[in-house]
Design a protein around this nucleic acid. Structure first.
Length: 283
DNA sequence: TAGGGGACCTGCAGGC
DNA sequence: TGCCTGCAGGTCCCCT
């Protein structure tokens, strides 16, 4: 799935087409995504202006003039595709409907935003904007990794005593919100920490050292437009480029890129998820 | 309470 | 060419 950098890239791609614009029509083609879409969603969205398009973790949040916020999660294969905008100008040419186009937003300005999700792991919900932080999907999330609440002391304290592998601990959205399988692999590779290590057994200075690495990896990925693997595309259909910078993920059998290391990247399975790391230099 | 694994759904790649 | 199998970026839920 799109992880934080991919979701942020999608959000930025949607801003010109959606922020400040009125939803002229919303069409629900299939209401049974991961969970059923909210009741009368099309009616509740039609005529609403999107006041602000934000993000929390891997969720896109569209604050509406009606006092509600539309929460969108892309799941593993969800896309928000924009049509009808070329070089910042609106027109009314849209591609033919495609399989898995589950929700379509026609904006008053002429843009069309289509939510397409083959695997239907994605989700949408509507909730009062004033209470969005208390929504059950968002209430338990940890701090944003690029925000001020995520710092060295926090992470050291949060992982103290935890006997789960560091890989699983960083994937825990209650610890830090927005990391997924790919970027956790990259972070641990750059930090030189084995994904098998028990989180609570890693020395505090090394745990603290994860914070700037996490920030760097995510910032670089956002700057590159995310990474395009299998299902993910940006909102304009373009590919992201960060996958070209992967040092561990997907490189099973390839030589380690750490200077002076003669090891090879190996793939193991942790909690049913692929983990890529170098056993030589990740300790 | 924490941790591990299964399930959800569909498309794609690779092997036969 | 067609069928079968395994795998995939997330996250909830159940069991231990």
């Amino acid at each position: 799935m799109p992880e934080l950098p991919e979701v942020e890239t999608v959000r930025r791609g949607l801003v010109p087409a959606m922020e400040g614009q009125v939803i002229a029509a919303a069409q629900v083609n299939r209401p049974d995504l991961r969970w059923p879409l909210p009741a009368r969603m099309a009616e509740r969205l039609t005529g609403a202006r999107i006041v602000r398009l934000g993000r929390r973790s891997k969720y896109i949040l569209a604050d509406l003039s009606t006092g509600e916020t539309l929460i969108v999660h892309l799941g593993m294969s969800g896309r928000m595709l924009v049509s009808g905008v070329i070089m910042g100008r609106f027109h009314h040419d849209h591609p033919a409907p495609a399989k898995h186009d589950h929700v379509v937003f026609d904006m008053e300005g002429g843009a069309r935003v289509t939510f397409n999700d083959a695997r239907r792991f994605g989700a949408m919900d509507l909730t009062p904007t004033a209470q969005v932080d208390r929504h059950w999907l968002l209430a338990g999330l940890g701090p944003e990794p690029l925000g001020n609440a995520f710092h060295e002391d926090y992470l050291v304290a949060r992982l103290r005593g935890r006997m789960t592998p560091i890989k699983a601990a960083l994937l825990d959205q209650r610890v830090v919100a927005g990391l997924g399988n790919i970027y956790v692999c990259e972070v641990l590779y750059r930090a030189g920490i084995s994904p098998r290590r028990k989180a609570g057994r890693i020395a505090a200075p090394r745990v603290a050292g994860l914070v700037p690495v996490i920030r760097d990896v995510l910032s670089e990925a956002i700057a590159a437009g995310g990474s395009s693997l299998r299902d993910y595309r940006q909102s304009d259909g373009e590919l992201g480029y960060f996958q070209h910078d992967f040092r561990a993920y997907g490189r099973e059998g390839a030589p380690c890129r750490t200077p002076g290391c003669v090891g090879q990247i190996v793939r193991i399975v942790q909690s049913g998820r692929s983990t890529f790391y170098c056993p030589q230099c990740q300790r």
